[in-house]
């Protein structure tokens, strides 16, 4: 099998397994399309609920959990390269969304969309590995109602054993401290074994597959 075919197959498996654990997987032709996807997701979702006190936040009508909602939506993208972040910030500004890359501890009550980038991924379980050394990146993936991960198709590997060396290298980078595997949105089955998503972290997990 040619490398292209192999990768095609891995993309298919990854997509199937990620979808099976409630991730939304979307292939896009360009980075611009990926950034546009983030803005579209933010625009189409219900505004984020403010789950705890946040004195400076302007409050809109109550959301599904009877918590007040954000009037100004927030997109966080701490680990996007400078130029990509600027493009995203422009798109957000046009829609009236805040686009931030730090200061997320001010918004622990919840934000709308958190963007992060996967180092590599595992097809067999639909898993993304994200470098979360940066506290802001970690928070973006935890406190957002919708988490969006950018993943380059060429970074998909077959299974857990095949990423052992990558993981070891990743954790060997100085000063690596925190690596996170993510397979779908936050979930629980602790009440009567009934599946429910969004118990602590994101209500939705989106994965954008980028060409190289």
């Amino acid at each position: 099998m040619s490398p292209a075919d192999t990768n095609r197959e891995l993309v298919e498996i990854f997509t199937a397994k990620a979808t099976a654990v409630n991730s939304v997987v979307q292939e896009v032709p360009s980075l611009e399309a990926a950034l546009q996807y983030v803005v579209d997701v933010c625009e189409s979702k219900l505004p984020a609920e403010i789950l705890a006190d946040e004195p400076d936040a302007e409050q809109g009508p109550p959301g599904p959990n009877n918590m007040p909602t954000r009037v100004k939506r927030i997109v966080a993208a701490p680990d996007l390269p400078e130029n990509e972040f600027s493009s995203l910030a422009q798109l957000c500004a046009a829609k009236g969304f805040a686009c931030v890359r730090d200061g997320l501890r001010k918004h622990l009550a919840g934000i709308d969309v958190g963007v992060s980038c996967a180092d590599f991924a595992v097809a067999a379980s639909g898993t993304c590995s994200v470098n979360t050394d940066c506290e802001q990146t970690r928070l973006a993936g935890m406190i957002s109602e919708v988490s969006v991960i950018f993943l380059h198709k060429s970074k998909i590997y077959p299974d857990l054993p095949s990423i052992a060396q990558l993981l070891r290298q990743r954790m060997g980078e100085s000063p690596a401290t925190f690596t996170t595997f993510i397979s779908g949105p936050s979930r629980t089955a602790d009440i009567e074994r009934v599946a429910a998503v969004g118990v602590h972290g994101p209500l939705e997990q989106h994965i954008i597959l980028l060409e190289d």
């Binding site: 397994k17 654990v21 898993t127 050394d133 000063p175 401290t177 595997f181 993510i182 936050s186």
Partner: peptide, 26 residues
């Protein structure tokens, strides 16, 4: 490869956190 399959018949749990050292805490 076995723990989540055996525990809850999952391929992998949603999150696996690997913490090697005291990280950023603003």
């Amino acid at each position: 490869l076995v723990l989540p399959r055996n525990a809850t018949a999952q391929r992998l749990t949603t999150y696996v956190s690997w913490m090697c050292g005291a990280g950023e805490c603003s």
